[in-house]
Design a binder for these strands. Structure first.
Lengths: 133, 133
DNA sequence: TATATTAGTTAGCTTAACTAACCATTAACC
DNA sequence: GGTTAATGGTTAGTTAAGCTAACTAATATA
């Protein structure tokens, strides 16, 4: 908690240089690694409700970073990165990589991996708590 | 980031049972461990701006959980827990402790401590980045 | 075929942050 | 010692990012 506030603050500053919000960046990230995804899939990934994702997607669409491709199921709205989206992602990636490298300075890779493992374990615990209700 | 969302969500549910918000809980926590603190001190601790803290404090004051004690410097407004505040803190503490124990199940103490250490290191890096500008 | 489920949207609300501009009080400087 | 700086706090107004409730359109199921 004490970590998250300054972390988000700095990340937002980095992203702000590219005119992006944190919530948008996360979606670009997902689509850069998954080719295409529907709104529900993205909402589930981010653990937010559908209306929240509707808004994020609309904003990214208006910026021309993502577009929807037609699918079989006409209810669904699968989204993918546009060429512009891919370009911007790559650019921001550089900034974010440098930022991450910066804040992880002096922490051994081993320690990093272990910390990530712990966090994943907690996350899974939290999520299973949710569905187990 | 992927951890924080579900974590905050669940913590908010736990706190909601006591009619508290996360931001308020953090201040109760600080005052339970520090006797008294001014608005600026609390804002610095939480890494938020003064107006944000003004609002949180007002809400806690209206709930009767904290009160301000007069100090020498008449600009300052040192706050401390009321008897009610202490009581509520102790109660919520129990819920939050159980919650934490729950999500840390199956993670060795050693791993927990190391993860905390890593997070503190990152936090310090972030904060020093701030002041070093 | 009628009903239930799923995908997504709209409308309206809330929390928790921010900046800019301000007042009161104390500290610092010639 | 009086003017100017800095510090502590508040008010007003804005924003991002989430939520629920209620809805439409399309597909699945009984």
């Amino acid at each position: 908690m004490l970590l998250y506030r300054p972390f988000e603050h700095h990340l937002n500053i980095e992203l702000g240089k590219h005119g992006l919000y944190r919530a948008e960046w996360t979606i670009l990230y997902y689509l850069a690694n998954n080719e295409s995804a529907t709104l529900v899939e993205l909402a589930h990934y981010q653990r937010v409700e559908k209306p929240t994702m509707t808004r994020i997607i609309r904003s990214l669409e208006e910026s021309g970073f993502i577009e929807h491709i037609p699918g079989k199921d006409r209810r669904e709205k699968p989204m993918k990165l546009t060429e512009l989206g891919k370009k911007v992602y790559a650019e921001v990636r550089v900034t974010v990589d440098r930022f991450e490298q910066d804040i992880l300075e002096g922490i051994s890779e081993e320690q990093q991996l272990e910390a990530i493992e712990v966090m994943n374990a907690i996350r899974n615990q939290l999520i299973s708590k949710e569905s187990g209700k």
